[in-house]
């Protein structure tokens, strides 16, 4: 077991080092910080950003929006998919709506959201529209793939419906959702930032990115990208920890 974790670590560190090397070589070749900023100047910019008094609230607001997207979409997907699994006609109504949501270009959606909603909610709306169809499918999958044999066992032992829902259905849904939680959270963050770039709420990573771009401060843009990557990584680690806590049977 241990051998594999070491190899896994090696496998995940090596590509990162090569990526940084490529960045270093490119920046040296181009030798122009506006096109490809060097590592040093990017680090300087990160420090400058972090020291800014608005930095914590900026990060927190974007994080808050991401979390809202994640929670609202999770809740909606569970409700919609549960209704779909009990009512064929509900499913046939909701399915085209969700597939429409999944196929509309995200930028067109942001533009519409800008017309309909206020600046603060655009990013959240965009995030939800993006991840809801994915989570919906996953929840439905989770419900449909519940082992028929386990349900039969519950029936023979006359287990009450409430207990069946609590002990079989809900865990199955949560296990299905948790299997994609990392990628949904990462997508939520990306979509929220995309929404922020265009709606420009007061405190947000998106509007800061636009600001750096306006000043043609490419190192600043790079600095924000690295901060976003770190944020994404932190979120994914938190999810891993929560998942292990919630589903200890999966640890084997």
């Amino acid at each position: 077991m241990k051998k594999y974790t070491i190899r896994d670590k090696k496998n995940s560190i090596l590509p990162k080092i090569s990526l940084i090397l490529i960045w270093l070589i490119l920046s040296l070749m181009v030798n122009n910080d506006i096109i490809i900023p060097g590592i040093g100047v990017t680090l300087e910019n990160i420090l400058k950003l972090v020291k800014d008094s608005n930095f914590p609230v900026t990060i927190l607001m974007t994080f808050f929006r991401t979390l809202m997207v994640f929670l609202i979409s999770t809740l909606l997907s569970v409700i919609l998919a549960s209704l779909s699994s009990v009512s064929e006609s509900f499913y046939s109504h909701i399915r085209p709506v969700l597939s429409l949501m999944a196929s509309v270009p995200i930028l067109a959606l942001i533009l519409l959201a800008l017309i309909w909603l206020n600046v603060e909610t655009v990013a959240i709306f965009v995030g939800i529209v993006f991840i809801l169809p994915i989570q919906f499918e996953k929840v439905l999958d989770g419900i449909n793939s519940i082992d028929e044999k386990i349900l039969q066992m519950a029936k023979v032992y006359k287990v009450k419906k409430m207990v069946r829902i609590r002990d079989i259905y809900i865990p199955s849904i949560l296990i299905a959702l948790s299997s994609i939680a990392n990628s949904t959270m990462a997508s939520a963050l990306k979509m929220v930032i995309a929404g922020e770039v265009l709606s420009q709420p007061r405190y947000s990573i998106g509007s800061n990115l636009i600001l750096q771009k306006t000043y043609l401060n490419t190192p600043g843009v790079f600095a924000w990208i690295i901060i976003i990557l770190l944020m994404s990584k932190t979120l994914s680690k938190i999810i891993d920890v929560l998942r292990k806590k919630a589903f200890p049977h999966d640890r084997m």
């Binding site: 044999k149 386990i150 039969q152 066992m153 519950a154 032992y157 287990v159 009450k160 207990v163 002990d167 079989i168 865990p171 296990i175 589903f247 049977h249 999966d250």
Partner: peptide, 20 residues
Amino acid sequence: EDRLIPWKSVEENIHFVLKG
């Protein structure tokens, strides 16, 4: 087949049929 619930421990699997 055993038909145990995978996310429940041995003890919880037995509790499951006794609830109520």
